[in-house]
């Protein structure tokens, strides 16, 4: 009987959402699953895993090999191993973009810039400092202040006709700046574009953008207009992989496969 695992699972327990991906030995993605992380990382991971299994139609008797990543990686009960989200995002991005590149990942509570060489090895990486400026949490806070649903930000920003400048590092002070812009009569769509512009600035000041640029993360998944603003700023096309929110989970699943002697991409 062959005891080798048939399914390779990546679970990314992020600050905001938990993502799971199942791939097979041929690196084919069988299913994606996402749910909110909440306060119980273990439960969030189990839920994402169960949803993924149900959608994939896998059987209870199937053998899994699970790699966990993200802030909650140490709380994933069924994890066979863990790897940092920095490694997993780089691995996932390289799967779709196997060239040297600079990866920008905008997550719920942190931003990462990871530089990878043409063989897929990480050259260096940077994370934002403790401040949430420029992260998904920043957008959530501002959307709440403006009483706008998060999924409406992108379409509002697309409609903007005027530039509104939001300069502060600090999320709270940025919100105060926005109040001033509202008093001055700025339109909400212009303000939302100004907020996106603030995210672009906070990210670009973290590191240099060398060569090809790839963007991933939940914020990118739901706000393609933000990507176009980055492209305009750096003056070249940015590659966004399919399902950018799942890049870390995919990287974890690939590491899981490779840890069992699978082929290195």
């Amino acid at each position: 009987m062959n005891n080798q695992p048939e399914n390779f699972v990546g679970i990314d327990v992020g600050a905001s959402t938990t993502k799971a991906i199942i791939i097979n030995a041929d690196k084919e993605i069988l299913v994606y699953s996402v749910n909110n992380t909440g306060a119980d990382y273990g439960a969030a991971a189990e839920k994402a895993f169960a949803n993924a299994c149900r959608q994939a139609g896998t059987k209870g008797s199937d053998r899994y090999l699970v790699m966990a990543t993200g802030y909650g990686k140490r709380n994933v009960p069924r994890a066979d191993d863990t790897k940092t989200e920095i490694s997993c995002h780089a691995r996932g991005a390289f799967h779709y973009f196997p060239k040297d590149h600079t990866l920008i990942d905008i997550g719920g509570q942190d931003n990462k810039i990871v530089k990878t060489d043409r063989s897929g090895k990480r050259v260096n990486f940077k994370m934002n400092r403790k401040c949430a400026a420029g992260t998904g949490a920043f957008l959530e806070e501002i959307a709440y202040r403006l009483d706008i649903k998060m999924d409406k930000l992108n379409q509002l920003a697309e409609k903007a006709q005027h530039d509104v400048h939001i300069g502060s590092y600090c999320t709270v002070f940025a919100a105060t700046e926005i109040l001033a812009r509202i008093r001055e009569g700025a339109k909400v769509e212009d303000i939302v574009k100004g907020i996106f512009g603030s995210v672009v600035k906070r990210v670009l000041e973290m590191d240099t953008m060398d060569g090809n640029v790839v963007m991933t993360g939940g914020v990118v998944a739901y706000n393609p207009f933000l990507v176009s603003m980055f492209e305009e700023k750096i003056g070249r096309k940015i590659f966004v992989p399919p399902h950018p929110q799942f890049t870390g989970a995919l990287g974890a699943a690939l590491y899981s496969l490779e840890s069992k002697g699978g082929i290195n991409a």
Binding site: Y71, K83, T84, I86, R122, N124, F125
Partner: peptide, 9 residues
């Protein structure tokens, strides 16, 4: 996370 990622590198 930073330190672990550095060692992974």
């Amino acid at each position: 996370t930073n330190i672990e990622a550095f060692i992974e590198q």
